[in-house]
Every structure is written in C-alpha cells, then in structure tokens.
Amino acid sequence: MALLDVQEMTQYFGGLCAVSEFSVSLEEGQLAALIGPNGAGKTTVFNLVSGFYKPTRGEILFNGESIKGLKPHQVTSKGIARTFQNIRLWFDMTVLDNIRIAQYHALGYGLLDCFLRTPRYMRREREIEDHAMEVLTRLGLREVAGEFPKNLPYGVQRLVEIARALSIRPALLMLDEPAAGLNSADVEGLIKLITDIHKDFGLTIWMIEHQMDVVMSLCSWIKVIDFGATIAEGTPTDIQNNPEVIKAYLGDDTI
C-alpha cells in the first residue's frame, strides 16, 4: 500500500481548471519531485494534499485513509508536514518557540492543567522543549535557538522552517521550493541536508523545486505538470530526455 495515493485529483477555481486529474503514488521512504513551469499548478497540488483546499473531484489517501477535505491541522496530525514557497515563520518568536509551537497539535493536556501547572503539564512541556532542541541540534541550529528568525540570514530561516516541519515527527515531508533564494553554497548544503534528513529520519520526501541540480541530485522519481495537467513522469534520465518536458519546462536545451 502506498503511503500517499492521490487519485485523479481535480481543482477548479471558478471556471479555471488549476489541476486536472492529477494522480501520484508515493511509497514509504521515497524521495520524489513535482516540477513544472511557473503557474503549472504545483503549489496548488501541495495545498490540496495538505488541506488548504478541498479538491473539486478525486481522492487523497494517506496510509490507506481518506484525508480529502480535512483541515490543515488535521492533515498534520495524520503525519504530513510541509514547508512553503514563501517562508512562514513567526518572526517575533524565538527559533525555539517556533519549533515548540508546531507540536501543540498534540499537547496531551488541557486548559486546567495549564492554569494549575499540573505534573502532566510540566512533563509534556519538558518533552516538547527537549524534542525541539533535539531537532535543532540535528540540523545544526542549536546555537540560534534563542534568536528571532527575522534577525537570521535567509538560508538559516529556510532551515528553521524545515526543522519546524520535522518537529511533528512526520511520515511525509513536503518541501515547496526549499532552494528558493539560496546562493550556490547554500544549495550545496541543502542537498546534503535533505539527503541526511531522508536517511536519518527515514522519511518519505516530496518536493517542488525549480533548480534542476537539486532535483536530479536527490530524486529517484519525478512528475512534471504543465497548465495543471501531467505531461511526464519517470526517472531523472527519463525526464531529461523527454521532448515534452524540454519544450514546456526546460526550453530548447537539455539539462
């Protein structure tokens, strides 16, 4: 059984078909990419899977269970975490608090526990902070735990967003253009980081990315969409040599 199984997912916005009969099957432990030109519908696909939109038609199964129509926090609780094309951090909260708050969908205590600071509350808060520090340490961010994201370089902010996603212990990590805005040195570091995350955390990773060196270095399976419709899918070699992909996305030259 696939970890994520999307079946003929279609999304209309008024009379515009943004995604047409999109299907994908991701196995546990797979590292795959969704690519296409600007406006192809890639982020819309991610928004549909992660609960920000409800598909007009089609089905979304995660671990064999339908998650179609669930709210984002409900999708998160099932084990799906994501980052965003435009960084979405709480810039006036510390890095540590950004990581801690991501775990609050599964607190395990109530409002009364909070007011009375019961042993259950104290124990759970320690667990949340310990786990947050563990994730920050594994991503090399321990030293900036007390900093505000707004004071950090852009590349570090990207890492904080990935750390926040990892803190919920997901089975599927969805990365929306993680290399956007990074310089060449940061991109090399990102490739290594994603490789290490994939190995160390045992995750399925699905990414949207425009930088082909990142996609070709990391992904074993690639799906290409254009104007909301699938035009190709296969291995990196298949995609490199597909004339429809070259025409629609890569231009007249091969990668």
Results as ranks from 00 to 15, higher is better:
A102Q: 07
H105I: 15
V75E: 06
N98Q: 12
T76W: 00
Y109T: 11
Y104K: 09
L96Y: 06
E134M: 03
Q85R: 12
A106I: 07
F91P: 04
V75P: 00
Y104T: 05
N98K: 09
E134L: 04
E65M: 12
W90A: 10
A132I: 02
Y121D: 01
F84G: 03
Q74I: 07
Y121F: 14
R100P: 00
P119V: 15
D130N: 14
L111D: 12
Q85S: 12
L112N: 13
T76C: 09
H105L: 15
P72D: 04
G108P: 15
E134P: 04
V95G: 02
E127L: 05
S77G: 10
E65V: 10
H73P: 01
D130E: 13
E125N: 08
L111K: 15
K68W: 08
P119E: 15
R82C: 07
W90Q: 06
T94M: 04
F84I: 11
L70C: 09
L70M: 13
A132Q: 03
F84E: 02
G79S: 07
I80A: 11
I99V: 15
R126S: 14
R88P: 00
A106L: 13
H73K: 04
E127Y: 04
L96V: 12
D92F: 08
A106V: 12
L107M: 15
I67Q: 02
A102E: 06
L107H: 09
I128Y: 01
